[in-house]
Each structure stands twice: as C-alpha cells, then as structure tokens.
Design a protein around this nucleic acid. Sequence first.
DNA 1: GAGTACATGGCAGTGACTGCCAAGTTGGCG
DNA 2: CGCCAACTTGGCAGTCACTGCCATGTACTC
Lengths: 214, 214
Amino acid sequence: MTAEENPPVGLRERRRRETLREVADAALTLFEERGVAATTVDEIAASAGISPRTFFRYYPTKEHALFHEDAEYRAIRVGLLDDVRGGADLAAAIQHAWVRLFDDFDRRPEIRARVLRVRRVIESEPMLLARAVTNDIDNADELIDAAVDAAGAHADVLTIRATVAAMDAIIRVVFGEWVRRSELGDAASAGGIYREVIAGLAPLGAHLSRDAAE
Amino acid sequence: MTAEENPPVGLRERRRRETLREVADAALTLFEERGVAATTVDEIAASAGISPRTFFRYYPTKEHALFHEDAEYRAIRVGLLDDVRGGADLAAAIQHAWVRLFDDFDRRPEIRARVLRVRRVIESEPMLLARAVTNDIDNADELIDAAVDAAGAHADVLTIRATVAAMDAIIRVVFGEWVRRSELGDAASAGGIYREVIAGLAPLGAHLSRDAAE
DNA sequence: GAGTACATGGCAGTGACTGCCAAGTTGGCG
DNA sequence: CGCCAACTTGGCAGTCACTGCCATGTACTC
C-alpha cells in the first residue's frame, strides 16, 4: 500500500492536483517564452490540454497560475504559523522560516531552479509583482492573527503588523536581488543575500531603537 | 499678470490637468459609492463628462485614476530627492519627508480628508493595495538612484534598496492603521501613529543591529 | 488667417472572465 | 452489476477592460 495522505485524498482530488500543476507548468513556460501580456488563456489551456472555461475553474486569473504553491513552501508557512502560535518571538520565527527555505534552495537545486524561474517572471512584470504582494498580504494576515492570539490580551497589534510588513519587504528585496544576480550569471545563494541585507540594515536598526528612546 | 509656472504651461496643459483631476474625483466618488469592481469605466467617463475612449488617454487603467498625485505629495517627493542627492542620511531623510506630510495633514484638513478617502478605498480592495505597493516601488527606484549617486563609487545598493523598502513598508502600515482608526470614528493623527510604530519597532531594530554583529 | 500639431469621440476588434446549460465521469450503494 | 447523485467538463453567449484606426474639431504658430 503506497502511503498517501490519510483522509481527504480521493482519486478525484489527486487528479485535480495533477492538473493544477500541469496548468501551472504550462503557464510558466509560456510566460517565459513570450511574456505574460502576450500569452492568452486560450494558449495556456491548449498547452495544458483543457478548455479555456476549465482553466478558470482551476485558477481565477491567468496570473494566479504562476503562483501555484509547491509543497515545500507550504510546509515552511505552516511551520511558521505553528511556531508563532507556540509563542516564539515573531521576528525571529519569520527569519528562521525564510532562512530554512533559502537553505533548502542551496541543498536542492531542482526547487531552487523552479522558484528562480517563477521569481524571474514575477520581477519582469509590475502586474505580477502586484499579485505577489497581494499574496504576501494575505499570508501576512494569517500570521498576524496567529501572533495576536499568541500574545493574548495585551497584544500590540500595530507593532505586530509593522514587524511582519518590514520582514516581508526585506524578503522581497532579497528575492529581487537574487533574480538580478542570477541574470548576471552569478549563481548567488538567497540565504547569502539575506544575510547581506541584514548586515546592511544594522545602522537602520540602531536608528530605530535610538529614535524610540527619545 | 497672474503668476503661473513659467515655461511649460500652455492653456492646453492647464485644461489637461483640470480634466485629470475631475476624472480622478469622479472615479473616487464612484468607487466609494459602489465599490471598484462594480464601477465601470463608462460610468466614470460619463460622470466626468468625457468619452470612455478619452478616459484611457488620461489614465491607463481605471485603478490608476485613484492614484492621481496631488501637488503636496509631489512637492514632498521632490524635496526628498533633493535632500538625498544633497547627501542627507537616507533613512532620516525619508522619515523627515513623511513626517512633514503627516504634519500637513494635521494642519490642513482638506488635504487630510482627501488622502483619507483615497486610502480608505485602497485598503478596501487587495488589488488596489497591490497597485499602491507597485507605485511605491516605482517611486523607490528614483529614490534609490538618487541615493546611489550621492554615495558615489562605494555605494551599497543592496542596503539602500532594503532601507527604502523597509521604510515604505512602515509607511504603508501607518496608512493602514490610520484608515482603520478613522473608520472607528477615531480622528487619529497619522504622525502620531507613525511615532507609535517607530516606538514599537525598537526591539526589532535592536534585533537587527545585534544579528549583524554576530 | 492659414497651416499644423494635438485632443476628442466613435467604431471595431481582442482578450479576460462569468453564468448557464448540456453531456460525460466518478463514487457510493442497494 | 446497475443506478442515482454529485461532481467535472466544455461550449455558448454576454459583459467589460483596453487598443488601433480614422474623421472631426480645437488650439497654438507663424
């Protein structure tokens, strides 16, 4: 008996996931080849072997097909939520989650390669960057709720929001730089870039803690 | 002779600016009344007294009509660019520019009211929030270039990028909180919220400068 | 006052996305 | 096995955002 996830995986569900993935791959490839604007939903659907009407039952917009969340990504996110709900320091937990993902990139080239392809397309079109940001915002809301719950009655929601927003912004910069360097042929490590950014931000950090003391 | 801007303001240009503004107002009002998705370009155009075809000669998408940049805003941005090009500390200059704008809000209720209306609509639709972020990113590029120029040969572009991104993220949180509180009937001051956020971020700042020292 | 550059509006076309309906599949159950 | 119910798919028609093209008007130039 091949071990599958236990209860909620019927045969239908597995097919659905396969199709989801195939459509995402088709979209990614076409986006890379001819750009996002020049790719029609009809083409993506044809390339994935489904009708255009069905495409929209899998993804609400053509851009969404690019943001198919792979398993590793999801695992990291769930782990982060657990940590935070368990009372971990918010900023440290976020940092830990991303560093873990970045380390994964260095260890597993096939994951690294796919994420890099996706991020490269994202950086190439402002529209996609916008969608990526809305994704970040959605995820952030979940994280903020978790942190608020963990902090209990005396939760400082505003600070929690600001912390998450700042960390997200930093991560976006890391991805941007990662793509930029890789396009220059530099096989940069995302984790390395992250550490560079943190180091560079030390003066700003000092500035922040000083300002508050006034 | 009424003092106008000197060289590049013909009669045509003035009309254009008026129309730009009228269209933006029409869009804002309709968005507030019935939501962004439920408002068609035809309605906005009709309400502003132009044809739909002409609408697209003023704004590339219906969302863009919301992001009409008013004079105060532009003045602040230009001032910031000058400061940075003049060699001012980047984070301090950004902070200074925003605080100046926030103080303007407290002093001039009509500006405050309009910005608040716009931000309220923005916060109500994730897509608009995303557009706002991409706008910020575009403006950021200009600012980053200025900072890089000012720093000369030994400019640390990555740190500059990260600094600007982090500050932008913080400002977005401020606007979000400002809208949230104002919807609760609380006539909050954006400047006050900014100071609250900075104070709350002190531990994160300390965290950042400590991490870098490791 | 004529000529030119530009702004406007209409028209037709493409492409994203939705609701609706008909046909095919799948899964459960007697 | 056979049958019903639930679900999935694809086609069709419709709305709306947005674009290129062209004819007509309006503003600046000399």
